[in-house]
């Protein structure tokens, strides 16, 4: 078997995968309003800010109920 240059992150890092995206979206959907969330997924760094006047805040977040002034919670995907 050969490993192609486009396959698993050709520059040596870990590419963003399809399942990473689902994990990221779960984190984003689970974050409370007016929160800033930072996610490290392999080589990728993502930052989201949710509006205050949005829909209801989902429960069960991963500790992102911090105030906007606090340092953003950071999650690193495996």
């Amino acid at each position: 078997m050969a490993r192609g240059s486009d396959g698993g992150g050709g520059d040596g890092g870990r590419a963003l995968g399809y399942t990473d995206v689902l994990d990221i979206l779960e984190i984003v959907d689970g974050a409370g309003e007016e929160c800033e969330v930072v996610v490290d997924a392999g080589d990728f760094h993502l930052r989201f800010v949710k509006e205050a006047a949005g829909g209801p805040t989902p429960a069960g977040t991963f500790g992102v109920e911090a105030s906007p002034a606090a340092a953003p919670p950071r999650r690193t995907l495996p």
């Binding site: 520059d11 890092g13 963003l16 995206v21 979206l25 984003v28 959907d29 309003e33 080589d43 990728f44 760094h45 993502l46 930052r47 989201f48 800010v49 949710k50 509006e51 949005g54 829909g55």
Partner: peptide
């Protein structure tokens, strides 16, 4: 998917 979520004010993505 992010574009379909109006509650997000800012979204940034970078890769190394």
């Amino acid at each position: 998917e992010v574009e379909a979520r109006p509650g997000l004010r800012t979204f940034e993505i970078s890769r190394g």
